[in-house]
Structures are given as C-alpha cells and as structure tokens.
Simulated assay, not measured.
Amino acid sequence: MLTHKVFLTQTDTTIGFVSQDAERLTQIKQRPPYKHYITAVNSQKTLQRFTRIPSRHRNRVRRSQKTTFIMPDGHSYRLIRDRHHLLLMNRLGWAYTTSANLSGNAYDETFAKRSADVIIAPLEATKQASTIYKLGKTTLKRIR
C-alpha cells in the first residue's frame, strides 16, 4: 500500500521525503507535530479538492514553477511540474513533502536512506529551495 510508505526521492527542488502519512514523517524528522507539511499535488484539479485558490491568484498558481503557496487557511501547497517527480506524484495524486533531514539539521545521506521505505534513484545534489508566497484574498507576501 503506497499511502503509508515514505519515499526518498529527488523532488522538484531538493532531495526529500514524500509520503501521504504525516505522522510517519513527523516521527522520522523528529519535528513538532503542530507544524504543517507542504502538500504536493500533481494537477490543478487535485489542488481544487483541498483548497479554494483566491480568484486574484489563480493565474499565478497555475503558471507557477517550483513555488509553494500558503493559502489563507494556513496550509501550503505546491503544484508539481518536474517530469521525474511527477511520475511518483501521478501514482499518489498528492503527498506531503519535506526535506530529507532531521528537523533543523543539514542533509545526511545515510540518515535519509536508513529512514525511507523506498528509495527512488537517482538522487542528485540539492538544488535551490522553492519560493514561498503567502496568499491573502487580495494580498501577496513573499516569505522565502
């Protein structure tokens, strides 16, 4: 069953853990349980099942690449466009995504490989992190 597995894969921005089980990711990363994960989705249609995008920002979200959006409800979403990462996302539909390290620490390959259930090769060097925007009904604020 794919929903409870933790995948170690090259995401669109970095090497990371991908899973539909947020509790499992929280245990692995030793992260506070109240923090939200970024929800990666494979299409605009899947994104619409989770949240309503403010009409002023719909075009921006649709055309975005390697960008995470924090919606007015406080949850964050990233629409996946990278074709290699999209192969996994099309099988899952959606998944929580996070960097493959302990919370607050740098990437450690041995920790990452030991913690994952499934390793999807190739794992390349980390790229630049995604840009993060916080969307309001009319406002847009750049977080990272």
Rank of each mutant, 00 (worst) to 15 (best):
M1S: 12
L2Y: 10
L2M: 11
K5N: 00
K5L: 15
K5W: 01
K5Y: 09
V6Q: 02
L8I: 04
L8K: 04
T9D: 02
T9E: 03
T9C: 14
T9R: 00
Q10S: 10
Q10M: 08
T11Y: 13
T14R: 14
T14K: 11
I15V: 15
I15C: 15
G16V: 12
G16C: 09
V18K: 06
V18P: 11
S19F: 10
S19C: 10
A22C: 08
A22V: 11
E23R: 10
E23Y: 12
R24I: 06
R24N: 04
L25A: 03
T26V: 09
I28P: 05
I28T: 09
K29Q: 13
Q30D: 13
R31V: 07
R31D: 01
R31N: 04
P32R: 08
P32S: 08
P32I: 10
Y34K: 11
H36E: 13
H36A: 13
Y37G: 02
A40N: 12
V41L: 07
N42G: 09
S43N: 12
Q44Y: 12
Q44W: 14
Q44K: 06
K45R: 13
T46W: 02
F50N: 06
T51I: 13
R52T: 15
R52G: 01
I53H: 01
I53Y: 01
P54V: 01
S55K: 13
R56K: 13
R62H: 07
K66T: 02
T67D: 01
T67F: 03
T68S: 12
F69T: 07
M71Y: 12
D73V: 05
D73M: 03
H75Q: 15
S76W: 04
Y77H: 10
Y77Q: 08
R78P: 12
L79W: 11
R81H: 14
R81C: 04
D82G: 00
R83G: 00
H85W: 00
H85D: 12
L86I: 02
L86H: 08
L86M: 05
M89P: 06
M89I: 11
R91N: 03
R91E: 14
G93Q: 02
W94N: 01
W94L: 02
T97I: 15
N101S: 09
S103L: 03
G104K: 09
G104L: 11
N105W: 10
N105E: 15
A106N: 14
D108F: 03
E109S: 15
T110C: 04
F111K: 03
S115W: 08
D117S: 12
A121S: 10
A121Y: 14
P122K: 06
P122G: 11
L123R: 02
E124M: 09
E124S: 11
T126K: 09
S130I: 06
S130Q: 05
Y133N: 01
Y133H: 05
L135P: 02
L135T: 04
G136T: 10
T138A: 13
T139P: 00
T139E: 09
L140W: 09
L140R: 14
K141R: 14
I143D: 06
